[in-house]
Computed example of a mutant assay.
Amino acid sequence: MRIGYTLMTEQTSPPDLVRHAGLAERAGFDFEVMSDHYFPWLDEQGHSGYAWSMLGAVTQVTSRVELMTYVTCPTFRYHPAVVAQKAATVQLLSGGRFTLGVGSGENLNEHVVGQGWPAVDVRHEMLVEALEIINALFDGGYVTHHGVHFDVDSAKLWDLPETRVPIGAAVSGKQSIELLAPLVDHLVTTEPDGDLVVQWDDAGARGSRKIGQMPICFDRDRDAAVQRAHEQFRWFGGGWKVNAELPGTAGFDGASQFVRPEDVAGSIPCGDDVDAVVEAAAAWREAGFTDLALIQVGGDHQEGFLEWAESDLLPALRDGQAG
């Protein structure tokens, strides 16, 4: 299982995030994923820069790690033809290191364009149609499309990379797997659910990457880590079905108001216990995941985490997998 680092736009300023990308590569991470948000989840996180500008900068401060959006919604804030252009450009700038991660989005980020927030079945329909457009543009040549949700008039990617941009899709169950597996290359999800992996393989995507994401909160002071994780990540336990629907930070604050610090500490490894992180990561490996991106909670606590990851955590995670 390859270990990645999350460039979390919601908790870090754009200049610091780009700098952390270079530090993470030097620390030895295999890949880096970047969230694509318009809002943070909670006001306490305090940031949400434009992911695609930062991705362009990250391609220039890294040379080895693979890069990925985790994930972009190509249906509301962005037209799919524009997403295809952005992805192709990042692939060229990175020298073939980019994967386009897509999903059906969250109300939190997509409501800003004033198009409402339809039911999940409609959002899935929109994502399928968007992927058909993106794939057609990646094939090369002119694309014209008149669909239920999108129109494209004689679009063409003039700077098309030699290495086609792989696509990963965020899924949460059988319905999304059946719809998306035929259109993409890799599975993306935020829960170590082995059933999703089996269903994905059964849908004809056997051999693809299965990419997960897991938060941790490193600090030499465990109590400080628990407090920070509660302050900034208490929303995380709501699950996709809740997190996709709430329209703003006040909603996430209200939905998580009864979550206690000990509740967060029970689901997010906190402190500097390497074994606790290795144990939590093992659940992903045992579920069949090939890639796991770690989130270090707290934008101001990345450099110490990256030093610890290089010296202690990454070697332990790789040794733990050897068994």
Rank of each mutant, 00 (worst) to 15 (best):
T72E: 05
A244L: 02
R228S: 07
G116R: 02
G168I: 08
L246N: 06
A136E: 11
M68G: 07
G212H: 05
T6D: 05
S53Q: 12
L196A: 10
V65C: 14
P40L: 02
E44M: 01
G288Q: 12
F218I: 10
S256V: 04
Y142Q: 07
L306S: 10
A280R: 15
G266W: 04
D272M: 11
E44L: 00
A281V: 14
H37D: 03
A276I: 09
M126P: 02
E191G: 01
L317M: 11
A293M: 06
D221L: 09
T290Y: 07
A282R: 15
Q60W: 00
D263C: 05
P261S: 05
T72Y: 02
P315V: 07
E303N: 04
G22M: 07
T163R: 15
A57R: 10
A244K: 05
V197H: 09
Q45E: 14
V61F: 04
D312F: 05
A229F: 10
W117T: 06
D275T: 14
Q257T: 10
V226G: 09
D223V: 11
H20G: 00
P161A: 12
G323I: 12
E66A: 15
D195P: 00
G320R: 13
V242N: 05
A21I: 09
D153I: 10
V152N: 03
A88Q: 10
A57I: 02
Q257R: 15
G323D: 14
L127Q: 14
D121E: 12
A203D: 01
D43V: 05
E303F: 01
L92F: 00
G141H: 08
D153S: 11
Q302Y: 04
D291W: 04
I268P: 08
R222Q: 15
G251R: 06
L100C: 12
N135A: 12
A87V: 14
A281T: 14
L157Y: 07
G46T: 02
S53V: 13
T189C: 15
A81V: 10
G56H: 03
L187D: 01
G46C: 03
N135I: 10
A280H: 14
H145G: 03
W117H: 07
S35M: 09
L92C: 04
I216W: 10
T249K: 06
V264P: 02
L67G: 08
N135F: 06
T62N: 02
V171A: 12
L157N: 11
D300Q: 13
E245S: 13
E25Y: 08
D30E: 12
V297N: 11
L137F: 09
V122N: 02
P261I: 05
A293K: 06
E66T: 14
T190P: 00
S104R: 13
G103E: 08
W52R: 11
E307R: 15
Q60D: 04
T69S: 14
V128E: 15
D275L: 08
